[in-house]
Amino acid sequence: TKEGTQSDSSNITTGENDATNNAVDAVKVQIGFENSLSEPVGQALLKWQQLLEEQGDGSILIELFPDSQLGTKSELIDSMLLGEPVITLADGAFYADYGVRDMGILFGPFLFETWEQCWALTESDWYAEQSELLEEKGLKLLASNWKYGERHTMTNSLVETPDDLRGMIIRVPNNQIQTQGFNALGATATGMALNEVYQALQTGTIDGAENPLATLYGRRLQEVAPYLLMTGHVKNFTTWVTGTAFFDTLTPEQQELLVSTGREAGLYNNDLVDQYEEEYLQLMLDEGVTVTELSSKEVDQFVEAAQSFYQKGDDFGWSDNLYETVRAAMGLN
């Protein structure tokens, strides 16, 4: 039988195991993510790993797989549904495509004015309902308090105002929410694999790309698109998610520990992100990037343009009056 081939090298742990496991039998949770370890989120994951080790009894450990080593986000989520001990990061746009339609709004342009509004929303009843819908789909949210960064726009020609952006072809990740969201701002969004973006910018196949500074800088886009427009069109928080099938095999203590250390690492992450954002900006300036800040009037112009996105709820399969519901949930009228 299968068990027969397996001796002491097994690392399977079931829910019946209590906290007296030694390290050999410890549950190894695999965290797979697209970023590299040197990015803030990678550093914060090392912190999570360390916190779990310090606060736990060694019965549960974290293994890190940066740079999509363990597979793409979709593959990892599928493997969670098959019961694999996997955690990955995902955001509203992804969950929308996954069938929890309303969560797509989290990635809408200019939804949040401040990060406080964002955290207010993730603590709201509305968010709890959405989390439950995800659980019905077999996905358990572990932490939703991680800043991923503000998304800005880099272009290969000078862009100073919202009007300059009109008609430019900007690469966005391949999903409906981000495509429509960026189209609403007047640009022409196009999907493309992140690996191809550098060359496409260099040759002018596309005019720009949008992402948090860490990714823009990490992909070295400043070499081929030396104009940074600080649009901040999405305040991008991210979530860590695992499969309910795996989560339910953990003891209540292990569950509690995984969640609490994940949130604690999130706070550490948010400090890092703030600090790094300034650093990345400085690095970009040092490498000759022209940085353009928007005036408050120009921001208003974008915010107004973004309204057309929120009226497309039917296209996205949203609940009625979702925009108003969400505004109310973050404490706005």
């Binding site: 299968k2 068990e3 081939t5 397996q6 097994s10 690392n11 399977i12 597979g71 793409t72 593959e75 599928d78 493997s79 098959l82 019961g83 694999e84 694999a193 690996n195 191809e196």
Partner: peptide, 22 residues
């Protein structure tokens, strides 16, 4: 030989290798 990994991942990975844009 590895009982704690779901064998369906064998199919998933053989498929994903053929599904690459690059």
């Amino acid at each position: 030989m590895t009982p704690n990994v779901n064998p369906i991942l064998f199919a998933q990975q053989s498929i994903s290798g053929a599904e690459s844009i690059s």
